[in-house]
Design a protein around this nucleic acid. Structure first.
Lengths: 126, 126
DNA sequence: GAAACCTTGACACACCTTTGGTAAGGTTTG
DNA sequence: CAAACCTTACCAAAGGTGTGTCAAGGTTTC
């Protein structure tokens, strides 16, 4: 039995039980439930709770921000629309074709690779 | 002279002058300034203002959401950290290497291309 | 030079988010 | 079976967002 109850998970992760429920409600971490409905936090959830605090502190984010990022990732249409709107600004060729967009996205990989190499803390040491 | 003042831009875009200033303050649309500091909205800005309203309405977003998406795009480190946190959930290989991540990103292109083809309104008819 | 703009800054208000507390009731365990 | 958990569902307070309005002062235009 390596699953903690909500109070135990709260203590070891640095959140309050209240916030653990809130984090679940906004869809960020949804622990398994016991037969009678108790939340059961496993090692994966605990790790995620800790890294979540770091993520928020490091970049001065709110839980809502991360929830929004999650929503973007889950709703491809929204993601596409938002990205399209944001990309319409910096570049300014009259018309953006799908091929233009894909090329832009692929160039992004070069930037990503640079970031990876420049900053090699890419392990999610679960 | 095809640049509008803030009141004119407000009328033709459906925002209020107040909101145009707010939209500028959160970094979404920053019009050029005349020598004496007046905001000057060109056709590009007007188009962006209109599509911004559509974007918000279509996906029930707030201006803050779009501003956050912009911040993600501008701050690569934040983008990487948030993405890493979100991706740590659905997949569950013990360790995510830079190569894993890149492969994942590249597979994303297949999904993006599908989205483009399925939903070919990719023109930013500026 | 006066009317009609523009600028920034402040005060304000309605609403939403985040967080805490408490109440009524079910579960686990010594 | 009672203590110590857990659950959901409310009420509430602090802070942030989105929006309006007003004031003091500069600019454009007739």
């Amino acid at each position: 039995m390596d699953a903690l109850t909500i109070h135990e998970a709260a203590e070891t992760s640095g959140w309050t039980p209240r916030m653990l429920r809130y984090i679940e409600r906004i869809g960020l971490i949804e622990p398994a439930r016991s037969g009678s409905g108790y939340r059961m936090y496993g090692p994966g959830e605990l790790q995620r709770l800790r890294t979540l605090r770091e993520l928020l502190a490091e970049h001065d984010l709110g839980l809502g921000d991360v929830a929004f990022a999650l929503r973007m990732r889950q709703d491809g249409a929204m993601q596409g629309d938002v990205d399209a709107w944001l990309e319409a600004e910096p570049r300014r060729p009259e018309t953006v074709t799908a091929e233009d967009w894909l090329r832009w996205e692929q160039e992004k990989h070069a930037r990503i690779l640079e970031a990876v190499n420049a900053n090699p803390k890419m392990e999610t040491t679960a």
